[in-house]
Simulated scan of single mutants.
Amino acid sequence: MIANLPSHGTRLLSTLGADGTLRLGLAELPVDQPGEDEVVMRLEAVPINPSDLMTLLAAGNPADGQFSAGEVAIPLPPEALPAYAGRVGAPLEPGLAGAGTVVAAGRNCEQMIGQQVTALSLRRGTFGQYATVSTGEFAPLPAGTSPRDGADAFCNPMTALAIAETVRLDGHKAVVHTAAASNLGRMLVAICREDGIPLVNVVRRAEQAQILADLGAEHICNSSAPDFAAQLRAAIAATGATIAFDAIGGGDTPGMLMEAMEDVAAAQMGFYSPYGSMTLTQVNIYGHLDVSPTVLHNERYGMLWSVNNWALPQTIGRVGPERAAAMQARVLAGLKTTFASHYTREISLAEALERDTMLAYARMATGEKFLINPTL
């Protein structure tokens, strides 16, 4: 047996029943024995990211849920059930990221006991008191940083860096980003400034625009403003952006971005062509804040365009292990500056199952980020 290994810990589970009802609750489960190259971390800070809600809620809407002491039952829409048939009866553990203290370790990691680490776990959820992770899934927190500082050292920071890497890898010189006042968006503002990449920031409200202006962002377009279309085209013309990263995903947002970039490219040709421009424009969808179908009007985008579903692992594979390690080192060094995360509320595991709290974090509203502290 491993010394100091806790026998059990509380975890949040999400289980889809055969009747189409998603049941969420807390369970006392055995802590996984660490292998030779694994550690058991006591989780102290766990961010709630949109990617976590995919596991936690599937296609369920908390507003439709029945809430009782420690349990939530949410019916999934009948039309969504075929997409989730594979998870029926399987208790899933939400949570990808988190930080805390190593309390037990396998033979090759015993030196880590007592150290604070940050982790990204694809195998075991982090919405719980303990998680067992391998050496490839965690990194020691730098001196002077807390678990709260390092709770989200992988998902948002590495995604923001990977966006900048993709701009370069695909041969673009500037980029458009939506939901730009989010934690990730603020990081991207700093990254692009540091790396010399012109950035067009799209937000939905004036107060979000002010947040980015205070950070020194140069090009900010407010989609609720009556002259938004003109703002966006002017910013694209000023920067030369031909690639966009969209956190919205559904509705007409991807098409709107594509159309704006094509309009600018066509205007810069100096002559009219019924075929549009020959400039390659790309929209990479990496988030699903809008889960409605994506609407595209192909005839509006010229001859060369693409819409892709983009994810961090693909870019990590493209850059290779050496560059990926350098990216991670950059994140760890900047957890209090470039890659600082801002949380609006800290909650316990039990509070994560309360109606008002769940409705709040499930909105995924820009500037409202929740942090679970499993020690509460």
Rank of each mutant, 00 (worst) to 15 (best):
H8Q: 14
T10P: 01
T15M: 06
E28Y: 02
V31I: 09
Q33G: 05
E38Y: 05
R42C: 04
L56T: 08
E71H: 10
L81N: 09
P82E: 13
P82Y: 11
A90V: 15
P91K: 11
L96Y: 15
A97P: 00
G100L: 03
R107C: 02
Q111F: 08
M112N: 03
A119M: 05
A119Q: 00
T126F: 01
T126D: 03
Y130Q: 09
D149N: 12
N156Q: 14
P157E: 00
T159G: 05
T159V: 03
E165N: 04
R168E: 14
V176S: 06
S182W: 01
I191M: 04
R193N: 13
P198Y: 05
Q208G: 12
A209E: 13
A217M: 05
A229Y: 02
Q231D: 03
I236L: 05
A237M: 06
T239L: 09
G251I: 02
M258H: 08
M261I: 07
E262C: 10
E262A: 10
A266M: 07
Q268L: 11
Q282M: 07
V291T: 15
H297D: 07
G302A: 11
S306M: 08
S306A: 14
G320Y: 01
A326Q: 15
A329P: 02
A329I: 00
R330Q: 15
L332E: 11
L335G: 02
T337K: 07
H342V: 13
E346I: 09
A352H: 07
L371T: 09
N373F: 00
L376N: 04
